[in-house]
Amino acid sequence: MKIKFMLNDRSQTWHTEPGESLLDLLRRHHVVSVKKGCDGSTCGVCTVLMNQKPVLACTVLAVRCAGEHIHTVEGLADEVEKISEAFGIEGADQCGFCNPGIALALYALKAEHPEADAAEIKQYLEGHLCRCSGYQSQVKAALRYLGEAS
């Protein structure tokens, strides 16, 4: 079946199967910032924005994206640049595998709760696993990003 949806503000009409996840659909079309990690709703590396809200692309059936607006980091370059800068300053950037998912979560957090404190950031980022950082530097980077963004 074919589905029509908006990907990074561009209309796309792609073929999918009923059981295909949004993650597999995106990666099949070379949207590779969306990583395939646990593929089981646990690690957060496949996070994308659906209608501006973070969702796990591995958990969303592609067929249900018809008519929806999907954003990945490729479509939010200006804002992701600011997040990357904060990550760089705070040393939150190591292997980088989890960064796209966390960047999109922070972008959503800024829209939802721009004055979030460290505890609220930690709670919002639960579900994003990082095997490098120990998370402290990422929370600092998030505070820097939100502080500069507000």
């Binding site: 709703s41 659906m50 973070p54 796990l56 969303v60 919002y124 639960e126 579900g127």
Partner: peptide, 12 residues
Amino acid sequence: LSQILGVAFRNT
């Protein structure tokens, strides 16, 4: 509810 996996999961 806030303790069920992460925000992205709970949005789905």
